[in-house]
Simulated scan of single mutants.
Amino acid sequence: MGNYIEYKDRVAFHPGYYIKEIIEELGLSQDDFAKRLGTTPKTLSVIINGGQRLSPDIAYKLSKMLGTSVEYWLNLQSIFDAAVTEMRAGEELEQERAILKMLGYSYFRDNFGLPNLPRQIDKQVAQVRRFLQVGSLTVLKNTDLAVSFRSASMEKDASTVVKSNAMLQIAVNEALETDAPKYNRARFERAVQSALVQTSNHDGFFEILREEFRQAGVVFVVLPNLSGSKTNGATKRVNERVMLMVNDRRLAADSFWFSLFHEIGHIMANDFGVSAEGDSGTKEELADAYARDMLVDPKAYATFVERGVFTSSEVCSFAKAIERDPGIVVGRLQKDGLVPYTDRVLNKMKKRYRVIVS
């Protein structure tokens, strides 16, 4: 930084700047001045170059040696500190503006009721900062802010990290604000079994799931997708509870339920983190297998597939037999390549949900 800074239309000088001038006026070397002052040449050099704050002890010694007051030197340091703080705040605000541009203020305004502030960027920054409950939007750049990223590729894209962290911060805040007991795995397992029969309850399942999960110490959060976050879902330990978040990017019922049970699979494996598009690896495969087998009984499915008849009536009969929504069965058949994604008749069975915001 040096022993002075220039910011906008002002210049602020570190006390070391003035000490250097005094040494030159006295015609002394820095070593001689340090000895007379009662400090080391190294300490004096660091202060002169602005690399260290002026301590009360050095201020006291300067006042005695030069006939000035202690307050004079400490005031010089305070003025310099204030200028540095202002400069850094200005630089940080510039970064926050850039981060808000990545996020888009409309996401928060339209989905969470933040006020409409057209062209008032700094006020928008303050609103989002307060809503997310962070000291600065710059913390959203940190890959270890809230939840670890399972995919290393996500960490390489700054915009993806920022957007994912924003969603995670919203979910974590909701988990912190929700009155829920300590996480109880056995009770959660029972709640998960109960959730399976809700797949056909398209209009009322969410509140039922949220309450049953809450009683097990799992806070279920569904958020509007923030485009570019590449985040399918996330799990995190929050105090003694668990946060389970999915977004509404996949509005088709089969995709929604698979994403939900994929995250449940991670919780059951005691594996907490962010699930992203294109994730791979053993943990993701295990979570996929958990979701796949929980949603569609593997033995019953194998028998159904062996018959090889996938008409709408057969799909409905099978779905009813396993107590699942027919759209989930259609999605499984399409995923396995047994029926085409272009089958209009079967696609009509895949219910599309409205946007749900917790």
Rank of each mutant, 00 (worst) to 15 (best):
Y18E: 15
S136C: 11
T342C: 09
F205E: 00
F310P: 08
S148A: 15
R241D: 08
D297S: 02
E94W: 06
G16H: 09
V222Y: 04
E240H: 13
V125S: 11
T160V: 14
S255R: 13
E94Y: 07
D336K: 07
F261C: 01
A34C: 00
P224A: 04
E96Y: 00
V309F: 10
Y18C: 10
S200E: 10
A98F: 11
V125K: 11
Q124S: 10
S45H: 09
F261W: 01
E284W: 02
I208W: 06
K230C: 14
V242C: 05
F318A: 02
E6Q: 15
Q120A: 11
T68E: 07
E207R: 12
S275H: 03
L260T: 01
F220I: 02
T40R: 04
G278A: 08
D254M: 02
N232M: 13
S106W: 08
S200C: 08
S45K: 12
G50T: 02
V315K: 03
A276R: 09
H14P: 08
R109N: 13
E92R: 13
K163D: 04
P340W: 04
M268F: 06
M294V: 00
R354T: 13
E212K: 03
K163F: 04
V238T: 07
L66P: 05
G331A: 03
L103E: 06
A287W: 00
V305N: 06
V345Q: 14
Q77G: 06
D343A: 09
D293F: 03
P118A: 08
P326K: 06
L44A: 01
D271H: 11
I58Q: 03
Y107E: 11
S106G: 11
G337I: 05
E177H: 15
D144R: 15
F318P: 00
R324A: 01
R119F: 14
L44G: 01
V221D: 10
N232P: 11
L76M: 11
L333G: 00
R332N: 06
N142Q: 14
R210D: 13
Y105Q: 04
W257I: 00
E212F: 01
F318H: 00
N75A: 12
R344H: 12
S106L: 10
T68R: 07
G90S: 09
L260D: 00
K64E: 11
I121M: 14
A191L: 00
S63F: 07
